[in-house]
C-alpha cells in the first residue's frame, strides 16, 4: 500500500487525479496550472514516456519555472520543437496524434459540454467570456479529454448556456453524427469534491469517487442534475507520497498551486 501523506491541499489531490488518467507514452496537450502539473506528475511517476505540447506551438518544453500561459517565454529554451498553431493544432491535434487534452470552463454540463463564451443570452450576455481559443478543437479531436471543474451548482449545470467545446453534445451518438473521431470524448471530470466518469451508454457524468472530506450525499447535493452513483463508489485515493514528492520537490517548489485554493478549489 502506497504511503499517503495527509498534509495535501485539494488542488494537489485534483492534480494527482489528473495524473492518474495519463498513460505512459501519451501525447498530451496542456495549458497551464492543473493540466501541466498533472501531466508532469505522471511523467515523474508512472508515465515517464508521456510527452507534452502547448497549442502555441511548443513540443516537449523544459521550463525552468512554472509557465503562466501557453505562450510563456520559459517554454522556448530547451523545447524539442517549436512551431505554431498550424503545427500543434493542425498537424498534431487534427492530424490525430494527441491522446489527452485538458479542459476547464465557467460552465460544464452533464454531457461534459463546456461554455467559455458567454453566460446568459449570447446576444446580450450577463458576462462575456474569452471564447474558445484551443478548447473547442481539443474537445473535438483529442482522443480523451479530462475536465477540471469547480463543484457547485453555478459551474455545473444540466445544460450549458452556450456549447463552446463539445463533450457528448446532446447525448449518445451525437459525436459520431458530427464525424468526430471514433471513441473520442470526455473521459473524466475532476472537481474539488469528486471524480465523475461518463457512462458509456447514456454519456452522462456519474459519480465514481468522492474526495476524502466529503460524501456521496454532499456530492449529489452539489450536482444540479440527477447524479447517478457507481455501484462501487468509493473514496478518492489521496495523493501518494511519490506524487506529492514530484509535485513539491520538482515541479512546484514554490507551491504556486495554492492559488487554486483562492479560486475556490477547496
Amino acid at each position: 500500500m502506497a504511503d499517503h501523506p495527509n498534509d495535501y491541499i485539494k488542488p494537489e489531490l485534483m492534480a494527482c487525479c489528473g495524473a492518474r488518467e495519463i498513460r505512459d507514452n501519451d501525447v498530451v496537450i496542456v495549458g497551464t496550472g492543473f493540466p501541466a502539473m498533472s501531466a508532469n506528475i505522471a511523467r515523474h511517476t508512472h508515465a515517464p514516456g508521456a510527452r507534452l505540447m502547448q497549442e502555441s506551438g511548443v513540443y516537449d518544453a523544459q521550463p525552468a519555472r512554472p509557465a503562466l500561459s501557453v505562450g510563456d517565454p520559459c517554454l522556448n529554451p530547451g523545447a524539442a520543437m517549436i512551431g505554431g498553431l498550424v503545427e500543434v493544432m493542425g498537424m498534431f491535434l487534427q492530424g490525430g496524434w494527441v491522446d489527452v487534452g485538458f479542459l476547464a470552463g465557467s460552465q460544464v454540463d452533464k454531457f461534459g459540454n463546456i461554455n467559455t463564451t458567454a453566460i446568459g443570452d449570447y446576444n446580450a450576455p450577463k458576462s462575456r467570456l474569452p471564447g474558445s481559443g484551443g478548447a473547442n478543437p481539443i474537445g473535438a479531436l483529442a482522443k480523451r479529454t479530462l475536465i477540471i471543474a469547480l463543484h457547485n451548482t453555478r459551474t455545473l449545470t444540466e445544460r450549458v448556456d452556450f456549447i463552446t467545446t463539445p463533450g457528448y453534445i446532446d447525448g449518445p451518438g451525437a459525436r459520431e453524427k458530427w464525424g468526430l473521431p471514433a471513441g473520442s470524448g470526455p473521459q473524466v471530470m475532476i472537481t474539488n469534491k469528486a471524480v465523475l466518469r461518463f457512462d458509456t451508454n447514456t454519456r452522462e457524468a456519474y459519480l465514481e469517487s468522492y474526495h476524502p472530506d466529503t460524501s456521496v450525499d454532499e456530492v449529489v447535493k452539489l450536482t444540479p442534475w440527477k447524479l447517478n452513483v457507481a455501484d462501487d463508489v468509493h473514496e478518492t485515493e489521496p495523493p501518494r507520497a511519490d506524487e506529492i514528492r514530484a509535485l513539491r520537490e520538482v515541479l512546484d517548489p514554490h507551491r504556486m498551486i495554492r492559488i487554486y485554493e483562492k479560486r475556490g478549489y477547496v
Binding site: 505554431g84 498553431l85 498550424v86 487534427q94 478543437p137 479531436l141 456549447i163 463552446t164 467545446t165 468526430l180
Partner: peptide
C-alpha cells in the same frame, strides 16, 4: 477557434478559397 482560424489564414496564404476544418461541428 485556434484550429479553424489559423487554417483559414493558411488557406489565404496558399491561395485556396476555403479549407476543411474538423472542429466546431456540433457546438
Amino acid at each position: 477557434t485556434n484550429l479553424s482560424l489559423p487554417l483559414m489564414l493558411m488557406a489565404g496564404a496558399l491561395g485556396m478559397p476555403f479549407v476543411p476544418v474538423k472542429d466546431m461541428v456540433g457546438t
